[in-house]
């Protein structure tokens, strides 16, 4: 059973000048098997939340807690968080020249599973997972994300989700920059992950509602000004689709624009 608890989380981003506070007290619990959608306008702090959970060095947690099955995530280094069962599908996956995708996947799987997967079954497993995401097998020999299109990068994030099988997956704008076909493929990948790992939780961070037509959330949160301002069911997503984020964004911003 896997539960992610975030309690009163305050986070600042480190800039060249002074640290700038982005998250102002986030409270959230993702329970086993749940999919929660975190929706919000640009600049609301959604990605900061995602990076803070994963432990990106540019973000500093000033107060609050993140617990995975009761264990303190924030005291763990980045790699240990992943081995504990956290996964972040990044909005902008990083290119790593000279490191082949297959070497990378195997290194990651070895780390997360605690032992090197048996070569024979591993090759099959990767092939299968790639074909489910319509990824050409030739990508295995290419450098990690290097020269991939936006859609190809996102598919490979979901490929990693499928192979690393985390307890909690945070998907940061996985839908952005995808065309309709790619969106369908990626969504199918997320749904397959949840069918195969019914205990796993998913936190789906998105700006748009369209991915929610393919992935059905149990809970929808609206994120604005560095905190959750409203939570509800699917109906909240419908409201956002019709009326946008105006109701949740501060008036002065509207006046200033």
């Amino acid at each position: 059973m896997s539960t992610l608890q975030i309690k009163d989380l305050h986070v600042s981003v480190l800039t060249d000048e002074a640290p700038k506070q982005i998250l102002h007290g986030v409270d959230l619990t993702v329970r086993p098997g749940e999919t929660q959608a975190m929706m919000g306008p640009n600049g609301s702090g959604k990605s900061t939340l995602a990076y803070s959970i994963a432990g990106h060095p540019r973000y500093e947690v000033t107060s609050g807690e993140v617990l995975l099955d009761g264990e303190d995530v924030l005291s763990m280094p980045v790699d240990q968080r992943a081995r504990a069962g956290l996964f972040l599908a990044m909005q902008y996956p990083v290119e790593v020249p000279g490191v082949s995708m297959s070497n990378f996947l195997r290194s990651a799987a070895t780390a997360v599973r605690g032992e090197a997967p048996k070569l024979r079954t591993w090759v099959k497993e990767v092939k299968q997972a790639m074909s489910e995401l319509d990824i050409d097998p030739s990508f295995a020999d290419r450098s990690v994300n290097e020269g991939f299109s936006g859609g190809e990068k996102k598919r490979h994030e979901i490929l990693q989700l499928s192979l690393l099988a985390p307890k909690i997956a945070v998907l940061d704008e996985t839908d952005s920059g995808l065309d309709i076909d790619a969106l369908r493929v990626v969504s199918r990948g997320v749904n397959r992950f949840q069918e195969q790992h019914t205990d796993a939780g998913v936190l789906l961070i998105t700006h748009y509602t369209r991915i929610l037509r393919h992935i059905t959330p149990d809970v929808v949160h609206v994120f604005a000004g560095g905190r959750i301002v409203e939570s509800g069911g699917a109906e909240l997503a419908h409201e956002l689709e019709e009326h946008g984020y105006d109701r949740f964004t501060p008036k002065q911003e509207v006046a200033a624009s």
Binding site: P57, V78, D79, P97, G98, V99, F104, V112
Partner: peptide, 28 residues
Amino acid sequence: DDDQLFYLTSRGIPEDQARRLVVRGFFG
């Protein structure tokens, strides 16, 4: 590149191994 290091470690790869992967990749 710290972002490369973050990306690799965020997949569970220990930091020393991630560094080696990047340097090996550089010379590859």
